[in-house]
Nucleic acid binder design. Structure first.
Length: 476
RNA sequence: GGCGACAUAGCCAAGUGGUAAGGCAGAGCUCUGCAAAAGCUCCAUCCCCAGUUCGAAUCUGGGUGUCGCCUCCA
């Protein structure tokens, strides 16, 4: 089955055909790092990461642009409150976000433009809009005239008259019309500012994406994405700006939007502040479990996050990993494997149905006929696409357990059963395991169980393997 | 107030006309000194009502509920 993707603009799943035969160009609206990133951001960027991996798997060259909005009103306000500069605030949160993305195995985009590095193209674009009479200047900025763009509302399927009738649009005396939006904001005293033909100031939020997409990818391009909350007004405004200047719209062929992540039944958002920083969450959970959790739900669906759901995903990940390790070199049934592969890739091609594909993967691991090198190759591909192969972050809980007092705590738990003076934590555990195995060999099971219990108190769980060896793991 | 999305087992969730994938949790059994893993078995008729159809979780209409957007937001 060839790839089909859901397009917000048409509200249908459509066959995907890139503008250039073998090259996909996509632009995804990235983060405004005026605050710590949260798990909702991770969900969104994770989805586009998997989309890129699948496009590459299908043989396309992908140029993936994801911007960073490194200037905004919120960071300026924060700077005024705290004394830290707005750029330092942005930098700090961006660094934390980038580190979290690395831990999550989300590959960096090919180009990650910052708005403040593209002031010139932004000013140029605003200039063109003013010159062609799509925009006007007031005493506090330059605004886009929404009335001059007849298709306004086509993406979000809104009617301009109904929008105007809505009670919640704030009346702003600076603007000619309530729907008009800022392209350029004049700086108040003390605010960061760049020169422009109309006066010193900073770009409005929407124009940067239009300008950077045009400068880096050229227009039109294939896929424009972001979270569902960006459909209106952000992406609607981008379309209005960009397509007003284009001889042959559209700006982008396919508009894709990821479903929002809820916490406690409510959307995570900066204004609600109802979230835990992503970096803190990653200290407590295996990032691959987080990926598995997200991939288990359709990307367009709203999703509620709970601690229990990550616990479940962690268990599922463990099972998948153990099953993978057992695929081994035994001969399997190639026809059976091929059938699973077909269903797996059909699911992914159907608007990236990762949840369906995951179901196929679990069915396949449970099937004894799926064995051997071909099966291993299939699982390698699947794990790569989902980004759950190997370990790409340190196991934080493990690091916390091995503190200086570890051996002392273990000795206390053991009583006088085993002497551990001067041992490293690893050596201490190995010594206890040896003692337990000696006890087992002597049929002294009571002593063996006491030793197991002592380790268990420190959350170290022993597993007796079939070959007679004993291994240990941390219990989360 | 306007617009939109969603509603499947204890929890998560796929499936959009042909008789309910999968995961987590749980129960029983096999294996096991114990424990874990593994294997086998069991566990829903798809929010409610009406309609279309030989046949509907899937289509239509009407309810109810939850959430989102309309304001910075992935």
């Amino acid at each position: 089955m060839s790839l089909k993707l859901y397009n917000t603009r048409t509200r249908t799943v459509e066959p995907f055909t890139p503008l250039e035969s073998n090259h996909v160009r996509m632009y995804v609206c990235g983060l405004t790092p005026s605050a710590e990133a949260h798990l909702g951001h991770a969900r969104s960027f994770l989805f586009f990461d998997v989309l890129r991996r699948y496009l590459q798997h299908l043989g396309y060259r992908v140029t993936y642009v994801r911007n960073v909005t490194d200037i905004d009103d919120r960071s300026i306000a924060r700077a005024r409150e705290t004394g830290e500069s707005y750029s330092a605030i942005m930098r700090r949160h961006y660094d934390s976000f980038a580190a979290s993305m690395r831990r999550l195995g989300v590959d960096p985009p090919d180009v990650e433009p910052r708005a403040t590095a593209y002031i010139e193209p932004i000013v140029e674009m605003v200039d063109e809009l003013v010159a062609r009479d799509f925009a006007y200047t007031t005493d506090d900025g330059v605004y886009f005239t929404v009335k001059k763009f007849p298709r306004y509302g086509a993406l979000s399927h809104r009617n301009v008259d109904e929008l105007l009738a809505g009670a919640r649009i704030a009346v702003d005396e600076h603007k000619h019309d309530a729907l008009d939006f800022a392209l350029w904001k004049f700086a108040k005293p003390g605010e960061p500012a760049w020169e422009s033909p109309w006066g010193a100031g900073r770009p409005g939020w929407h124009i940067e994406c239009s300008a950077m997409a045009r400068a880096i990818l050229g227009e039109p391009f294939d896929i424009h994405g972001g979270g569902f909350d960006l459909v209106f007004p952000h992406h609607e405004n981008e379309i209005a700006q960009s397509e007003s200047l284009m001889p042959a719209p559209p700006m982008a062929n396919v508009w894709m939007h990821g479903g929002l992540l809820m916490f406690d039944g409510k959307k995570m958002s900066k204004s609600l502040g109802n979230f835990e920083p992503l970096s803190a969450l990653l200290d407590r959970h295996d990032p691959r479990a987080i990926r598995l959790l997200f991939l288990g739900t359709g990307y367009r669906k709203p999703m509620n996050f709970t601690e229990d759901s990550i616990t479940g995903a962690t268990a599922a990940l463990d099972r998948l990993r153990r099953a993978y390790e057992k695929l081994g070199a035994d001969a399997g049934d190639p026809a059976v494997l091929t059938a699973y592969e077909g269903r797996f890739f059909d699911a992914l091609s159907d608007d990236l149905n990762t949840a369906g594909a995951l179901g196929v993967l679990f069915e396949a691991v449970a099937d004894p006929r799926v064995r051997g090198p071909q099966a291993v190759a299939f699982f390698d591909t699947a794990q790569h696409l989902f980004g759950i192969a190997g370990a790409f972050a340190p196991a934080a809980p493990a690091l916390r357990i091995f503190d200086d007092a570890f051996v002392a705590r273990l000795a206390a738990a053991l009583g006088d059963a085993v002497h551990l003076n001067g041992h490293t934590p690893e050596a201490a555990i190995a010594t206890v395991i040896e003692a337990r195995n000696a006890a087992r060999a002597g049929r002294d099971f009571a002593r063996a169980d006491r030793l197991r219990k002592a380790l268990a108190e420190l959350r170290i769980v022993l597993t007796d393997n079939k070959d007679g060896t004993t291994s240990w793991t941390f219990e989360e």
